[in-house]
Design a protein around this nucleic acid. Structure first.
Lengths: 372, 372
DNA sequence: CTGTTAGCGCTTTCAA
DNA sequence: TTGAAAGCGCTAACAG
């Protein structure tokens, strides 16, 4: 039915092998022959059969990119960056397969299987990992098998996998074969959160609410840890309050809204609210406004990530910038083997505090004499 | 190297064919045999070789989704919806391949070729099309070939392809084979824009600036047409001004910003600015604020699309809602053949005017006595 | 219900 | 520099 290599070969008066060599370009072919073949390809509108060539060559040009939520710019930016590294011009037409896990661990595993089935050349897992031990175990297993099957695995925006316990001795040999643990591009969420809370503390805030992400995510935990570390640094007494002033929710707008209402209920004297990310911060602002509170007059608000809309929010959002594009691009290059692995296999990208209009000193700037 | 069907067959003491049948599940196999096979699969950690099975079966479970900008929620939402229709539970593990064209016609064609090479089961093209005749021609050709090769083609958020000239007679036969023109889920951009401008006009605005998208896009053109139709409806004299009060830019924040500055230069008496979409509107608001103009006190602003952040903007953005998720889901179902084609092959989804706080009557609401 | 037998279209030694 | 031939791993008739 469709035009095949053989058809092209016949038309060009050469063997199929020659056509294959011309097309893959990694083998010397006489100039005249080559152009004859190319012409035949044109005339017949020949398009390589990917599955057939993947089968024969035992490789594929698919690269999987797993994201929690493709409609969220946080992931969109990373996915776009990963893909930008495999543009046809740059990397011989690799195809990025963006898979939307919706944050579900099962779907994550399912997609990984699907990708393994496609014999993907590489897989990039973006965003926070779910910290359930059973899932971590299952995930490690899957990734190990993928790696063993020759698929490059890269983590972007999540910490390296925990070490598999107890068999490091045996692994020595295997590592040499499959390249060992997945390469990682991690974000300094902890440091960013710490600086952000430090900024609020320096402004004089003491009653700081925190609308955190889902409890079992690495990103959530790291940001929360950074927040509390800053609190502890400043005054250990603040730490006692921290628990009460923290609520958890999804990484979306409505969690910010609902969470803020809850926080206000628990502590009407709140002078600042920290959000799990910028999207959540939008919800926080909405709830605050509806409660008749001005930002930052009555309450300061800050987000995390510095998504494009954050600078344009009104007031412009104080947040922590993560170089998502750079990180994604780097992950893409690692996935294609176009960049050498960082020392230890883990590259941590810096985060940067972006102070904007949504944070200011609390109205009655009393130096927390009572609490301290 | 890797475990193959034959290995599983040997282990289970059956033929390869039987294993294949158990795995694909579309053929009767005795219960006992089935479980024996399944156990062997488990024990050997067997994962089907996708390329091999695609080759043999002459089908693939890849579905391509072309987007202009994956980091833009407008596309993210559609892509997510398309993909949600092929969750493993719903449609036997189809893999959505999201391809980022960056709005480049060449890349669009390149990805289409790549997808054809993979023998994709379907392809969904989202968002506005570039209106260059040469590109339209090239695109039609590609899509025709894809369809001829058995790939389902669906357009989502763009108008149906213009009819190929002159060979409709001959096509009769071909249509029966490849299903004819691509199925289309189109947006009523024109109607939405018309209602939006109508809304401003009703409020009393007469000097309305328009920051349009890139000139050669269908979406841009349709929205602009709707805008001008509303102007003409109200008072043909306004049409004369329209040209002068329109600037073009990309669908991003900075075009809104720059465009507004330019509009203000051309017409300091502007009482309203319409943006190509919500993202652009954010830039418009920023520029206005920096110019010391209040929204909507001095100038009203409206966007298009109703992306999630729009309701939370401050002031909340008046805009035109497009049911992006529904549209994407529908496109996904059409792509998988799980929903029958709409009459004529084109489904137009309604758009809805969302009036919020960013638009209000102009300060000095003079009934345009001078112009009318 | 299960096994046998051909390929699917391409890549890749191995010769020439 | 080119051709011949042997698969890659799986599916799909076709028997039985």
């Amino acid at each position: 039915m469709a035009v095949t290599l053989a058809d092209v070969a016949a038309r060009a008066g050469v063997s199929a092998a020659t056509v294959s060599r011309v097309l893959s370009g990694n083998y010397p072919v006489a100039g005249a022959t080559r152009s004859r073949v190319l012409r035949a390809v044109e005339e017949l509108e020949y398009v390589v059969n990917g599955p057939a060539s993947s089968l024969a060559a035992a490789t594929s040009d698919l690269v999987g990119v797993l994201v929690n939520d493709i409609a969220d710019p946080f992931f969109g930016i990373m996915a776009s960056a990963v893909q930008s590294e495999m543009e046809p011009e740059k990397a011989g037409g690799k195809l990025a397969v963006v898979c939307n896990t919706g944050g579900s661990p099962e779907r994550e595993l399912t997609y990984l299987t699907l990708l393994q089935r496609q014999r993907a050349a590489a897989v990039v897992l973006t965003g926070s990992a779910v910290e359930d031990p059973a899932h971590t175990e299952a995930l490690s297993t899957r990734l190990r098998r993928l790696a063993a099957a020759g698929t490059r695995v890269v983590l972007c925006g999540r910490p390296p996998l925990p070490e598999a316990d107890g068999d490091s001795g045996r692994d020595g040999e295997k590592d040499a074969v499959d390249g060992g643990a997945p390469l990682t591009v991690a974000f300094d969420n902890r440091g960013g959160a710490r600086r952000l809370t430090g900024h609020l503390l320096a402004l004089g805030h003491r009653r700081i609410g925190y609308v955190a992400g889902p409890a079992e995510r690495t990103t959530t935990r790291h940001r929360l840890e950074g927040h509390r570390a800053a609190l502890a640094d400043h005054d250990r007494a603040l730490l006692a309050e921290a628990e009460r002033l923290t609520v958890h929710g999804a990484y979306d707008r409505s969690s910010g809204y609902d969470g803020t209402l809850e926080l206000l209920r628990r502590e009407p004297g709140l002078t600042a609210v920290l959000a799990a990310n910028d999207t959540v911060a939008l919800g926080v602002c909405a709830a605050l406004r509806e409660a008749g509170l001005s930002i930052p007059g009555d309450v300061s608000v800050a987000g995390f990530d510095d998504l494009p809309f954050s600078a344009d929010a009104s007031p412009a959002l104080t947040t922590v910038r993560i170089p998502l594009h750079d990180a994604g691009a780097r992950a893409g290059r690692l996935a294609l083997g176009r960049e050498s692995a960082p020392p230890g296999g883990v590259a941590t990208v810096r985060t940067e505090l972006m102070v904007r209009a949504s944070t200011a000193a609390p109205r009655a700037n009393q130096p927390a004499a009572q609490a301290g």
